[in-house]
Computed example of a mutant assay.
Amino acid sequence: MRKLSVLTLASLLTVSTPALAHVGHAEHGSFIAGALHPLSGMDHILAMVGVGLWAAALGGRALLAVPAAFVGVMLLGFVMALFGLPVPFVEPVILASIVVVGLLVAIAQPVPTAAAAAIVGLFAFFHGHAHGAELAGNSAFWFGAGFALATAFLHAAGVGLGIAMGRFMHGSAGVRIAGGVAALGGVLLLAN
């Protein structure tokens, strides 16, 4: 089972689209465009599933609090971008979030839920800002609702994957391997 999971993740990395897979401005502004956006690039998928994996690895209150903090602060970053707040290094921080969260999953160091929520919240602000900066005046509400829902879905997929791996793969070993693979994927995306 462990080999299958690692092979599946490795396969996804090799067939991924490049990082920064953001659709053009003309396609933004609808609920569907917002919902598809987090599913459009490996950078989004690795980051969002990684947050869910970390929440699963931490367990307890983190199962809900960590993904909820990400979505909430992501929406704050989105709104700040709509108001024109300039933020430097958005794309590098987004890619760094994959590496950092993946490593946090891989090392399996216990972290208080509030600290984990703060860490993902910091990265979430940059993710949200990227979405808002690209919107270019279209329908912010529906686009924001779409990408928030898709992000929550990817977090839930990560939580579910983490819980399943924890049950069926000798405890945290599978989750830690998945975190390491996600971190490696982030490094590869940073190198592009």
Rank of each mutant, 00 (worst) to 15 (best):
R2C: 08
R2T: 12
R2F: 10
K3V: 14
S5L: 13
S5G: 10
V6S: 07
L7R: 12
L7Q: 13
T14E: 11
V15A: 06
A19N: 02
L20D: 12
L20V: 02
L20G: 06
A21M: 02
H25G: 12
S30Q: 06
I32C: 03
A33W: 00
A33M: 07
P38W: 04
G41C: 04
M42W: 13
M48H: 09
V49R: 02
G50H: 03
G50V: 01
V51L: 06
W54L: 02
W54H: 12
A55Q: 12
A56T: 09
A57I: 08
A62H: 10
A62W: 01
L63E: 13
L64F: 04
A65N: 00
L75I: 05
L76E: 10
G77E: 10
V79F: 03
V79Y: 05
M80F: 04
M80V: 06
F83W: 05
L85W: 04
L85S: 06
P86S: 02
F89T: 04
F89A: 09
E91D: 10
E91P: 01
P92V: 02
P92L: 03
P92R: 03
V93Q: 02
L95G: 00
A96N: 01
I98K: 01
A106I: 11
I107K: 08
V111M: 15
T113I: 06
T113F: 11
A114D: 14
A115V: 14
A116S: 14
A118N: 03
I119A: 14
A124D: 12
F125W: 06
G128P: 04
H129R: 11
A130Y: 06
A133V: 08
A136Q: 14
S139I: 09
A140S: 06
F143H: 09
G144R: 00
G144T: 07
A145H: 01
F147W: 10
L149D: 07
A150F: 05
T151H: 01
T151W: 00
A156H: 05
G158R: 01
I163S: 07
I163A: 13
A164D: 15
G166I: 00
F168M: 14
M169I: 15
H170Y: 12
S172A: 15
A173W: 15
R176G: 01
I177N: 11
A178N: 08
V181S: 03
A182R: 01
L184W: 12
L184I: 04
V187I: 14
L188W: 10
L189K: 09
N192K: 03
